[in-house]
Design a protein around this nucleic acid. Structure first.
Lengths: 330, 330
DNA sequence: ATGAAAGCGCTAACAC
DNA sequence: GTGTTAGCGCTTTCAT
């Protein structure tokens, strides 16, 4: 593999001139310039990343830390984030957190060693907030930016790009109430999840705005996956709870919930309306087609790019709206 | 950030000794060893990756090239691959191909520049085979391994780790036939997909083994997503085609297919049986619960790890079986 | 406008 | 058993 020395020799110039031409750092005589470019092309020269990084003290890679890449909204973000960041010369290193707070802290602790220039966290999981804020501040001092996506960590001084989940859930639950679908239950993990808390907050807001009581029995704190949705509804029915609608914290949960309802011979939407969250690609192909809240992974990706390419201050909070997508399930 | 020099100074030794202790490359007196370790710990020393990579001429990162991270089987592989490779000191750089052959070729062409030590391709898309084989051979010469996952590229000399899709589909279609669910249709992209071709091959094998004709009208070549599944079945019904079962090339397709059948008031499984492919986390929460073929992303990840950690020859083909998971849809 | 040379942090070959 | 030193490939002063 050719290096600057090879190119310099072939072009009959010094390595400094090669560097100048290739990086456009200084004015070089036109004919020299052309000789260098020709030589570089002839030799299929490509700069060595490790050497560049060593020299620069930076790495142009961001750690993309995800709680669970199998969740549809997380996968959608990954899909758009990688190509978007590539346009500004950044690579994405995938880092699976597997819902482990320890793994997140380890990543933050070792971010320097990892040699990343930024950490993008896509994990709703709760974490030791003091430790998180501490790491973020320390890394900021080292020039390593920490960004939270689809989760609000702005109160920790961490730049956060997210959907307005409070408003979204309030909008959706408002619709359910307006259509007489009461009482409304809320199904979603929130004890251990920032995003879950925001979503539940919207639910509570809508109930209060309508002057309805918040029944603790109708908030079911379960994980995001379909299995959890099934189990939650199955248990609620076993307890004899009455409800006319379920607002879910994810489409996967909604799918599990609908399965449980159908297994109990409860019709959706006639007997119980169900609303999902974040419009998975398959949501409109469930039967009944799933009513849900929209998701804009492209917008999230662009906002992250802007944060990472911007030089100065980063806005601490970027909010993206979700729309109510009415289909058949509610 | 502390470096070897800082540690050496603090421990009162030379940088070479620090390196020896930290890497265990040579015997060092016990007390010296301890002083060095203490100093390193005190200074929170962590080796600089760029320097290491530059020195070693390697990078310990693998490019994880995926056609579409939103597809459930691809996401599952990503989920297991990253932590598995981390155990042998490799990072995964995510690289979205977005089903573009050009992007794959660019990645292969620039793999050196990218500084990756291996490329793991998880893309069923067809590509220019000559070019692909050429790049793989060139990269092998440079010590950069190319591995195909969930796709057979072994005929190009590329080490491939995959499920035995031919056997899996044959098994499943055999079941359908044995239960009198004929004629069986096949729904899945195969004109542009290696994996799709293998799956269809299994379908043809099963039909022939049973002495049944292969009706070209009953092979529907559509993309993997739910929307495509819906469209395929909708069109088949509009054409008045008769069939008693559909073997699908993915669970997403099966979901779309079931929606289309139900919209046409055709009952699943009573009128038409439907089988998916690769057991998505949500497959058992569809109603009817989706009969499908199992998937073993953990096994794939382990096999990839073995290929990447092995020094000598890599087996050109590692096959992992899929089981028939009988649920309600067939 | 161009070249010589230093140095980023690390490892390993070579002394002693 | 330990220290000295060269050098991986690159960018950037500092000269000229």
């Amino acid at each position: 593999m050719a290096n600057v020395g090879d190119v310099a020799r072939r072009a009959g110039v010094s390595i400094a001139t090669v560097s100048r031409v290739l990086n456009g750092t200084a004015v070089v005589a036109e004919d020299t310039r052309e000789r260098v470019l020709k030589a570089a092309a002839d030799l299929y020269y490509t700069p060595n990343r490790a050497a560049r990084n060593l020299r620069a003290g930076r790495s142009n890679t961001v750690a993309f830390a995800v709680s669970d890449i199998e969740q549809s909204e997380v996968a959608a973000i990954a899909k758009y984030l990688q190509p978007t960041l590539q346009t500004i010369g950044l690579d994405c290193i995938l880092y699976s957190l597997a819902h482990s707070g320890d793994r997140l802290m380890r990543l933050l602790r070792e971010a320097e060693q990892f040699g990343v220039s930024a950490v993008v966290i896509v994990s709703p999981d709760l974490a030791d907030e003091g430790e998180l804020a501490g790491h973020a501040a320390r890394l900021a001092g080292l020039g390593i930016r920490v960004i939270a996506v689809n989760n609000d960590r702005s109160h920790l001084g961490i730049a956060s790009v997210l959907h307005d989940d409070v408003a979204a859930t309030a909008l959706s639950v408002g619709h359910l109430i307006a259509n007489g679908r009461v009482p409304v239950a809320y199904l979603g993990r929130h004890a251990g999840s920032r995003a879950g808390q925001a979503r539940r907050q919207g639910y509570v807001t809508a109930l209060q705005a309508a002057g309805l009581p918040v029944d603790p029995d109708l908030t079911w704190d379960f994980a995001y996956r379909s299995a959890a949705g099934y189990e939650a509804v199955d248990r609620a029915l076993a307890r004899g709870l009455a409800f006319a609608a379920i607002q879910c914290g994810s489409d996967e949960l909604a799918m599990g919930a609908i399965a449980a309802l159908q297994d109990h011979r409860i019709r959706v939407p006639e007997d119980v309306a169900v609303v999902g969250f974040s419009n998975s690609p398959w949501a409109m192909y469930l039967r009944p087609a799933l009513t849900t809240l929209s998701s804009s992974p492209q917008h999230l990706a662009l906002a992250v790019r802007d944060l990472l390419s911007g030089q100065g201050e980063m806005p601490l909070r970027t909010l993206i709206r979700r729309d109510f997508l009415r289909r058949s399930s509610a």
